[in-house]
């Protein structure tokens, strides 16, 4: 007799919290600017008091015009993001057209909702989604950001948002520095500053690692598509931020 429920992947998780079984990804920030959106994430993953990874990547291009960043249980988040990428690409190929930006956000919300059971046991993952809306009437307002809750709620954010353990500090930094309609370069700088502030006050968020040359992952989505800043470009901005903080540690 077949008993598929006994296969390793199908056995129910034991009751109780399992939050400490895998590494956790931490802070992601996103902000809109004149040309589109910027998203950046630090490179640290933690397991309790230990640093599980110094160079994990948590910000990805979901497709040609949108970005997704993950916070929470790293393994679940990376799997979720991979599935999301495949879904968007599959839809595009089958239908011959991309999903609308809001359609992508709603799809991602459903995927989060499906993880609710595991999330309640501690394996939670929350993404941040941002993209360039190719259908927007006004290209100056085509950059959009969506945040999610664990139960599948999807909320469009104005201007900027952050998720993860350091998000409190990152959002506070952006609240004081962000202005609507900033240029893409200013946006990249603001995101880097916000991550620096998060790393400054949150132990689970990693700052720019000048010794190992590991810098936050910074991605942009504009009319030209989604793009990741090269390590040299991200490094230049990160080093400039650190240099300025030597004179004024508060930014």
């Amino acid at each position: 007799m077949a008993a598929p429920e006994l296969l390793p992947g199908r056995r129910p998780l034991p009751a109780g919290a399992s939050a400490e079984v895998g590494p956790h990804a931490t802070t992601i920030v996103a902000l809109t600017c004149a040309d589109g959106v910027v998203m950046a994430g630090d490179r640290r993953a933690t397991m309790g008091n230990l640093i599980a990874s110094r160079d994990i990547e948590k910000v990805f291009a979901a497709d040609a015009y949108s970005l997704v960043g993950i916070a929470g249980t790293a393994g679940v988040g990376i799997e979720l993001m991979r599935l999301f990428q495949v879904e968007l690409e599959h839809y595009e190929k089958i239908e011959g057209a991309m999903l609308s930006l809001h359609g992508k956000a709603n799809r991602l919300a459903t995927m989060i909702r499906n993880n609710l059971g595991a999330a309640l046991q501690g394996l939670a993952v929350i993404p941040l989604f941002a993209g360039f809306d190719v259908d927007a009437e006004d290209p100056g307002h085509a950059g959009r950001i969506f945040s999610f809750d664990i139960a599948g709620g999807v909320y469009e954010e104005k201007g900027f948002d952050a998720i993860g353990s350091g998000s409190l500090f990152a959002k506070s930094a952006l609240k004081k520095r962000y202005r609507a309609g900033v240029s893409l370069d200013e946006g990249v700088r603001l995101a880097m500053e916000a991550l620096y502030d998060a790393a400054d006050d949150d132990t689970a968020t990693g700052g720019p690692d000048l010794i190992r040359k590991v810098y936050p992952v910074v991605m942009t989505a504009t009319a030209e598509g989604s793009r990741r800043l090269t390590d040299e470009e991200a490094g230049e901005v990160a080093e400039a931020v650190v240099r300025d903080r030597m004179e004024n540690p508060g930014g």
């Binding site: 497709d63 040609a64 595009e92 057209a97 989604s226 990741r228």
Partner: peptide
């Protein structure tokens, strides 16, 4: 690419037709 295709009558034209979002991500 990636580039928004020339304005066309069909919704299919909006598709960039293929870009690699994960080329180095």
């Amino acid at each position: 690419g990636p580039k928004i295709a020339e304005p066309g009558p069909s919704p299919a034209d909006k598709s960039p037709g293929g870009v690699d979002p994960v080329a180095d991500g």
